[in-house]
Design a protein around this nucleic acid. Structure first.
Lengths: 337, 337
DNA sequence: TGCTTCCCCGGAAGCGGTGCCGCACCGTAC
DNA sequence: GTACGGTGCGGCACCGCTTCCGGGGAAGCA
């Protein structure tokens, strides 16, 4: 089934079939349109998207790369983006980098080669190869959630510094001597990594309260399983911290699990706060106090930026930034209630 | 940058460039090949995948449709498929149907229009529209995990009946008077729905042990959040069941959470078993006894079937089935240890 | 040396659409 | 009756790549 068949049956040219399918670029007389539509239906004709993409040099695809869609936060993010894109008639292809630069670039190349109309990148590492690939293709990219230094493109991120500060202060307000911080795995996380911002926010809050941060920053991968292992060791020691802010909810869930294992009461013996407000945060025991931002709105912003020409704005990195506010969601793991 | 540029720089024809890129279909003299490769590198040429797809009438894409990739089970399944496909040089596009027939068909059409080389369908509802769409396109489809009656294609599924039977018997062996079952939401789940098989397995085990199943089957959506709500009501009643087998681990997690809320000790006051063995099952409190199957192998089988011509086999539905065994993973929620 | 045979390579015809450009036809103004 | 503007369609040149087919040159053989 090709346009030719349709054109023949409708007794028109193939051009007219195109005009009808795309509502343009030239008008078609109502009667002709009807004939074409009828022929399409009769033959069960479906335009070949590949051929359309080839000829029109565009697609209604958006590529999205995330570190690992099995983690709830990324899964929810991807879902939000999918919805926002669907609202604008676009489809999202998502690829998992598995926290590997190499796979990130692999998907980047693959998506770009597929002529996606834009790319939403929830980056992981330093992404230097990704950066060169991006401007080799002169691709339309928006960074979401993380903002690696190597990549200059427009970014949609949350105010992680304030968020962490909020959470830390809140924990401090509960009267704890200090608050430990569970960051990412990197010794010195790159600028643009939300986790480094979390750490920064935590530092500020601690400083303001006049507490030392010395030796109170711990490292764990962002997922609950590894964080659980780390927390097991951390909480079992002699100087167990009275409170912990985590860089992600998933880590916090691991901490909660470790605390239960060790029969440490939360929040009685240990206060915990997370970050991201994943859906599950409401169903942990105790429910997790965490830092939220408007995921829907961020997804929409990212999609809008990538589709409209919001990307090509000039200006410094700071200006090419869409910063969403963080707010504290108080549940019970902090000691409230 | 097109092939023409490469050909010009290398001093060959465009055909030769193709031969080099694809290692065929005709051989190229080593010296020529080198020149072409050098030109490609110098220009930073990347073949246009869309044009390749258009000309060759194939892609290295596999479409996959799942109900909701935010649920751990589907996320893990998708990940396994992604890996299996990557091993064979293919890329997977995944779409979420959100349990809506309409969106399932939407993705089906979209993927088919993109000329994917095959489709792996983790279906949800009855999928009748999906079925007509599939043979309208004469698409290469393999069903994974679920097997709606409307779709005739080859399926890769687990032996859910035995699995549920195993789990139920095990719970019974712990001496409980009976085992309740938490199934899906449908009054009469369609044939091919694993959940209906779970229920069937549960029935058999109960029958064998001479226990009545009357009024002991309950309904809940497959996710932890809704299952939690259902469990809250179920467990709070006067005749709380002594043991429950759930149709999915996610439901079981919801049940565990509800039990904790109600201060019911698991497994002391309530034994629980799940189904699927998602990663998280090892990290619940208590760790979840569940039914596992080899997800890796199933993913590989699905990918192999969809890519090779395993699909076109004749034979009855029963013959067009790849059944993977279920095995019981004993942890602590059942009362062991 | 003349004729096959084989190996490499190039020309060119698609793949299934898009969309520019121009033509034919009709109605209106003069 | 001729000139003219507008409207609706159709011809056709692409988009960038694959791959068939055939030609030309070198090597092999008599």
């Amino acid at each position: 089934m090709t346009r030719d068949d349709v054109a023949r049956l409708a007794g028109t040219s193939t051009a007219v079939v195109s005009y009808v399918i795309n509502n343009g670029p030239r008008p078609v007389a109502p009667a002709t349109r009807e004939r074409v539509l009828a022929a399409i239906k009769e033959l069960g004709y479906r335009p070949d998207r590949v051929a359309q993409a080839m000829a029109s040099r565009r697609t209604d695809l958006i590529g999205m790369i995330v570190p690992d869609a099995r983690q709830p936060f990324f899964a929810e993010m991807a879902h939000a983006v999918e919805q926002a894109a669907a609202d604008r008639g676009k489809m999202v292809l998502v690829g998992n980098s598995d926290y590997l630069d190499e796979r990130e670039v692999h998907y980047l190349r693959a998506f770009l080669g597929m002529r996606v109309s834009g790319l939403i990148l929830v980056s992981q590492g330093p992404s230097e190869t990704a950066a060169v690939e991006i401007d080799a293709w002169d691709a339309r990219v928006v960074l979401l959630h993380r903002r690696p230094e190597a990549i200059e493109d427009v970014a949609v991120v949350t105010d992680d510094v304030s968020g962490a500060q909020l959470a830390t202060s809140h924990l401090l307000d509960h009267g704890h001597a200090y608050v430990a911080c569970l960051g990412g795995t990197e010794e010195t996380p790159a600028v643009g990594d939300p986790v480094s911002d979390h750490v920064e926010g935590w530092r500020r809050a601690m400083d303001e309260a006049g507490r030392s941060t010395e030796g109170r920053l711990f490292q764990a991968p962002y997922n609950r399983y590894d964080a659980y292992q780390v927390a097991l060791r951390l909480l079992d020691g002699p100087d167990r911290p009275p409170a912990i802010v985590c860089a992600t909810d998933d880590q916090a869930i691991g901490v909660l699990r470790a605390a239960r294992e060790l029969r440490i009461d939360v929040p009685g013996g240990l206060a915990v706060a997370g970050f991201d407000d994943v859906k599950e945060a409401g169903l942990t025991d105790p429910p997790l106090t965490t830092v939220a931002s408007d995921r829907q709105a961020m997804a929409r912003a990212a999609v809008d930026l990538v589709l409209d020409d919001g990307l090509r704005v000039a200006g410094s990195r700071r200006e090419r930034l869409k910063l969403f506010p963080s707010r504290l969601v108080i549940r019970r793991s902090c000691g409230c209630d």
